[in-house]
């Protein structure tokens, strides 16, 4: 048995262990699940050490002697107090330091998600499709306006919004089916191809 075959066998074992959940919960699945969590987290430790601690903390302080970096490094280490009853307030400092960039989020999210979308929604209606999009956008916005009861003419208008949303959800559902099936195809391709060599 070649090294590749052994590797594929191990991968197939874990794949089938997870699939076994389809029949019912069982020790193979639980074993695989527990191992998955551990390996995933264990994987992050050396990665963070080599890819971020060394270049962003160790190198500036110990090689470039930029000692000011000790301040953010010490501030970062305050994260460990998050689980302490009395000192958890210390962990707020690194959190708020990272959170501050949200200041840019106010104008930029307004621009990206509201203004740009509004601008194109207000473009001249030059064909049937732009008209349909215009009607849909307006009726959905009206649907989400709950300060007025959805009755009478207003209710009929908001109903159009519901129809649009149903089409939108239908499209999302169609795509979701495709996505889920694709993931299974990936695993079956591995089992049938790489492991059992049944695919030509």
């Amino acid at each position: 048995m070649s090294f590749e075959a052994i590797s594929n066998f191990v991968a197939a074992f874990f794949t089938l262990s997870i699939f076994s959940f389809l029949y019912k919960d069982n020790p193979f699945y639980k074993f695989a699940e527990a191992m998955f969590v551990g390996v995933t987290m264990g994987y992050a430790i050396p990665l963070v050490y080599y890819n971020t601690f060394i270049p962003f903390v160790y190198r500036p302080i110990f090689i470039e002697h930029n000692f000011i970096i000790l301040i953010p490094a010490l501030m970062g280490s305050l994260y460990i107090f998050r689980f302490s009853k009395n000192l958890s307030w210390l962990s707020r400092y690194p959190i708020v330091f990272g959170m501050a960039i949200i200041g840019m989020g106010v104008p930029l999210s307004m621009h990206a998600y509201v203004l740009v979308q509004m601008r194109i929604a207000m473009m001249p209606i030059d064909n049937i499709n732009t008209f349909i999009i215009f009607v849909g956008t307006i009726t959905i916005l009206l649907y989400f306006f709950f300060s007025k009861a959805h009755k009478g003419v207003y209710g009929k208008i908001t109903n159009i919004g519901i129809w649009y949303m149903m089409v939108g959800f239908g499209a999302s559902f169609g795509y979701t089916v495709m996505a889920r099936i694709s993931l299974l195809i990936g695993r079956i391709q591995f089992l049938m191809g790489d492991w059992l060599h049944l695919m030509k």
Partner: peptide
């Protein structure tokens, strides 16, 4: 469907979400 009614639906919903995100920020 994707480019017309779906687009309108997602834009209508997206505008609400966008305003919500800005408000949260």
């Amino acid at each position: 469907i994707l480019n017309v009614p779906n687009l309108a639906a997602k834009r209508g919903i997206g505008l609400g979400v966008g305003l919500g995100m800005t408000a949260t920020s």
